[in-house]
Design a binder for these strands. Structure first.
Length: 126
DNA sequence: GCATTGACTCTAG
DNA sequence: CCTAGAGCCAATG
């Protein structure tokens, strides 16, 4: 397991109950701002193998973008989100404005991001 | 090493 | 609000 993968997992595990983040946000928070697709890729490849709140990761416009139709599906993701208070509509859409988790500098400390970069990603997700 | 593959994102129109 | 297209980069074979 690469350092990148470990950071992705760690970041996802920090998402609080009842909140969501986007794939790109996870990537940005660990210091690789354009690696959103890899975050999705990792989530797919580790499904069922790693203990992490995968359902709290959605795309940046608020839609659930999990692809699976069987065990891991949009329906399951919707159910899990709603069970923790996140409202998801019939189009599998939710309000990022309302439910997005915003990390603080303190919470991102372990990723050792350069000072100016750290503050730019924090201000990016207001 | 090279090509392919995405649970992505951003911009333009 | 929607669609198309380009860019993205870790993981795989």
């Amino acid at each position: 397991m690469s350092p990148f993968t470990q950071k992705v997992i760690l970041m996802i595990q920090k998402i609080p109950h009842g909140k969501v983040v986007s794939y790109g946000q996870v990537a940005a928070y660990i210091g690789v701002p354009r690696a959103s697709r890899q975050v999705g890729w990792i989530l797919h490849s580790t499904e069922g193998k790693v203990d992490l709140p995968w359902w709290r990761v959605v795309n940046n416009n608020g839609y659930l973008s999990i692809r699976g139709n069987d065990t891991y599906s949009k329906s399951l993701q919707k159910k899990l989100l709603q069970s923790e208070g996140v409202e998801v509509d019939g189009q599998f859409h939710l309000s990022m404005k309302e439910f997005r988790y915003r990390a603080t500098a303190e919470e991102l400390k372990l990723f050792e991001l350069p000072y100016h970069y750290l503050h730019s990603v924090i201000s990016k997700y207001v």
